[in-house]
């Protein structure tokens, strides 16, 4: 049960923000770790205590990595965690948690509970539970994202494929233009019962945008 447990969310980027909010919604007490002062301030002002992994080891019941960095949960951390702490990763790669170091830790015993759930018993008797061997937990232990949110991502993917196939780009990294981004959102509004307000000519002129968009400058952060 998540309610009442202490969840340590490592990283407060887009994925960390979603994880922390979700865990809070389940009734967990959420701690956040961050290296970026901006994200740390955001977390604090959402009501999450920001501290280090080291300082969370005697409190945390569940540790989630969302950072995109490596060695976020180290073997030294896992050796000091509370008994039966759950450790998992929802960043893209499995190097956020030192899994190989855990497997090779002297005297550690691995007990497979079921597919993608492994208990590691340390020589001092405490154990941790590692999900999906440190790989993406939402896909390894569940079935990934719901269709509606993936429709947004994949509509972007499809538009990107059409762009690449139809146009000649120089070597480089590009983003889709904002009017396509807005179009993706527009395509999903009806399904969730939203009705857009339409700018009047005067309002559009006042803002200095076209009535049909794009509505924001590229530097706008949403």
């Amino acid at each position: 049960m998540l309610a009442g447990k202490v969840v340590v969310v490592c990283g407060y980027g887009d994925v960390g923000k979603g994880s922390a909010k979700s865990m809070k919604g389940y009734g967990s007490r959420v701690l956040v770790t961050e290296i970026d002062p901006i994200c740390a301030l955001q977390a604090t002002m959402e009501g999450f205590k920001v501290q280090t992994v080291e300082d969370s080891l005697n409190e945390g019941n569940i540790f989630v990595t969302t950072t995109g960095n490596k060695d976020v949960i180290t073997i030294e951390h896992m050796a000091k965690m509370k008994d039966k702490s759950i450790v998992c990763n929802i960043g893209h790669f499995d190097n956020e948690i030192q899994v190989e170091e855990l497997e090779n830790y002297p005297g550690v015993k691995r007990i497979n509970i079921k597919p993608q759930v492994d208990q590691f018993v340390f020589p001092d008797g405490h154990s941790i539970i590692l999900l999906s061997e440190g790989r993406l937990v939402n896909l390894g232990n569940a079935t990934g994202h719901p269709s509606f949110v993936m429709s947004n991502s994949f509509t972007n993917q499809t538009l990107a494929q059409i762009e690449l196939w139809k146009k000649d780009f120089e070597v480089g990294v590009y983003r889709l233009p904002k009017h396509l981004d807005e179009e993706v959102a527009r395509l999903h509004l009806e399904h969730v019962g939203a009705k857009l307000t339409v700018l009047s000519d005067e309002q559009a002129e006042y803002l200095g945008v076209e009535k049909s968009g794009p509505y924001k400058p590229d530097h706008y952060r949403y």
């Binding site: 994925v15 993936m150 991502s153 972007n156 070597v171 480089g172 990294v173 590009y174 983003r175």
Partner: peptide, 27 residues
């Protein structure tokens, strides 16, 4: 890759479409 001059073909960053990272990543 681009900084190191190792990218050999164009790429589109879908992740940073607002309708991707501000939704998929968050939820």
């Amino acid at each position: 890759l681009m900084e190191k001059g190792k990218l050999l073909f164009p790429a589109i960053n879908v992740n940073d479409s607002v309708t991707k990272s501000k939704f998929d990543n968050l939820y």
